[in-house]
Simulated assay, not measured.
Amino acid sequence: MAKDLSSGLDGILGGQKNIKEPISKQLTESHRATFVIDKNQHEKLKAIAWWERKQIKAVLKNALELYYASRSKEELEMILDKYTDFNKNKE
């Protein structure tokens, strides 16, 4: 028995099933930077990323978020304000 070709590809293939919607990306601004880190720290970072099946940048982001969380919101705001003022005075 032949497939009905008048309905296009959906008729031939039997329709679309189990199509996943694309995962939306986070809309955050990124900045590319180069850092020098200890060789042992870099090896541990790569190993954790491999173990968790994540990109190194995702593991590093998580580590930085944990570090920031160790400070109070008020302290972080004060540090950012002073840093911003310092950079304005350099110009």
Rank of each mutant, 00 (worst) to 15 (best):
G11T: 04
Q41H: 09
Q41N: 11
V36T: 13
I48P: 07
D4S: 05
N89Y: 07
A2I: 09
K46A: 11
I12M: 01
Q41Y: 05
I12H: 01
A2L: 11
H42Q: 06
Y67S: 07
K54N: 01
I12W: 02
W50G: 11
R53P: 07
K25P: 00
E74Q: 10
T84V: 15
D85S: 06
E91R: 15
I19S: 03
N40H: 12
K46W: 00
K54W: 02
K73V: 06
N62S: 08
E52A: 01
V59S: 02
K90C: 00
N89Q: 12
K57Q: 10
L13K: 04
A2D: 12
R53S: 12
A47N: 13
L76F: 04
N62R: 13
Q16C: 01
T28H: 06
E43M: 02
L64E: 00
E21P: 08
K73G: 03
I23Y: 05
P22V: 03
K82M: 09
M78H: 09
L13M: 11
E91V: 06
S6I: 00
Y83W: 15
D85P: 00
L13V: 14
I37S: 00
N87V: 11
Q16G: 00
K17E: 14
D38T: 03
L60F: 13
S30N: 08
G15K: 09
M1T: 08
I23Q: 08
E74T: 09
Q55E: 14
K17P: 11
K44R: 13
Y68K: 14
Y68E: 11
F86Y: 15
F86K: 13
D4Q: 06
K54D: 00
W50T: 11
E74I: 11
L80V: 13
E21N: 13
I37K: 01
S30E: 11
K25C: 04
Y68I: 14
